[in-house]
């Protein structure tokens, strides 16, 4: 979900799923509702106005669940340090498991990050 990003990360997530990189061959699939998800991808720092909505979405994801932050500004606030409209980096709001830095990260990096999260999820399910 987008919590205040510039879209660059979002289009790279989609590019990851397209025929060139084809993440679906690994069994990674984008679902349309948080209720069907194992992993929540968050792009962008969290703005004040969207803070409550992101918590709502997080609560809808069934257990066990993981959060992956994609992009430099979601991990650390990046270029938006001084902004008054920022509630903080994603880990100030949600428990984050995997960080994928980059502005935006390349699709390869996103696949690698999701694979890391997958390993963690398998451990959790045991």
């Amino acid at each position: 979900m987008n919590t205040g990003s510039c879209n660059a990360c979002d289009i790279e997530i989609l590019a990851t799923l397209m025929p060139r990189y084809d993440a679906e061959r690994f069994g990674i699939k984008l679902v349309g509702s948080p209720r069907h998800a194992d992993v929540l991808l968050v792009t962008g720092t969290v703005t004040e106005k969207i803070k409550d909505n992101i918590l709502q979405v997080y609560e809808q994801v069934p257990e066990p669940k993981l959060v992956i932050v994609i992009g430099g500004c979601g991990s650390t606030k990046g270029v938006f340090q001084e902004s008054y409209a920022m509630a903080g980096p994603v880990d100030a709001i949600l428990p984050v498991d995997v960080y994928i830095p980059g502005c935006p990260p390349r699709p390869e990096a996103i696949i690698y990050g999701i694979a890391k999260a997958w390993e963690k999820l398998e451990k959790l399910q045991k």
Partner: peptide
Amino acid sequence: FGYTHRAIERIAQE
């Protein structure tokens, strides 16, 4: 509007 309002114009002043 305003859910990803990041105050870029304000940051740019600094």
